[in-house]
Nucleic acid binder design. Structure first.
Lengths: 140, 140
DNA sequence: GCTATTGTACTAATTAACTAGTACGCTAGC
DNA sequence: GCTAGCGTACTAGTTAATTAGTACAATAGC
């Protein structure tokens, strides 16, 4: 059994998002390399004891972001053309949209650059726990 | 009646959030000044043709954020203790929503803290021209 | 062509968020 | 005290998101 992901249905985070996150992170870190095959939809669903459609949704999102390439009858594979840098860039692009929206909002309300930066740092600390505290806390 | 807010139930944005945002923005800009009374829950509900509880929820959030002070039997008033600092904090709160959304997106996609910080800096530079921005190009 | 394996499409059940309806507690003025 | 005005608590209806169940389409190997 190759690499197996883990999900927690009670974490509040949608299962399909937990899967996409782990795949993307694995690609970015290099654990999953271009061309490598992912577990099949039904195999992963069986391993995680969830529905196949949930895995399929995760894979669909990953394909939309050009992280994987999937073909009915063959399976799903880490995108070969984009490589790791491509995956990272695809991710960055989506995130950039959200960031720009936030910055525009701040500026339209007259918030200073320093203040905005300060706010950002706090958001960062809130969602990227320092060190390797893997424990999750349900925010307020 | 004095200042009336507007809401769009079909915008997809929860009504109570539309209200809190408008109040916070008004406070930040100075349209609403400390000590000033807000429309009563039922009055505003009648004006906007929505339920009083929806307005009440908005006011509750605003009080939680120390933007207004409300007492049963008296009404709701713009917080007087905070003044300018309060306004700034009110603005920060609105912006914070957008930032948190961006950070969450980044994290859900497996983007590292460093990469996200990098993206943010670039968005910042794009919208806040380098007037007296301190030099922070090299290693962070 | 036939069969096994893979992803997909369609539909339903569950859950959470949001809003509304109604009745109640608190404050002010008489 | 009593009344009027204001916010609150509790409950129910609506909607959207998430997940699961079942049946279908595409690819590979025989």
């Amino acid at each position: 059994m190759p690499p197996i992901f883990t999900v927690d249905p009670r974490s509040g985070v949608p299962i399909y998002l937990q899967i996409t996150e782990q795949v993307k992170r694995s690609v970015a870190v290099g654990v999953l390399t271009p061309g490598e095959q992912l577990p099949t939809v039904k195999q992963l669903a069986a391993d995680l004891v969830i529905n196949a459609n949930t895995v399929a949704r995760a894979y669909r999102e990953l394909e939309r972001d050009r992280v994987i390439e999937t073909t009915p009858g063959r399976g799903s594979f880490i995108a070969s053309n984009g490589s790791v840098a491509g995956a990272k860039r695809a991710v960055a692009d989506v995130v950039d949209q959200a960031l720009v929206a936030a910055v525009r909002e701040a500026r339209s309300m007259g918030l200073g650059r320093g203040d905005l930066k300060d706010l950002f740092e706090r958001s960062l600390d809130r969602w990227y726990p320092h060190d390797n505290a893997s424990e999750e806390n349900a925010a307020s």
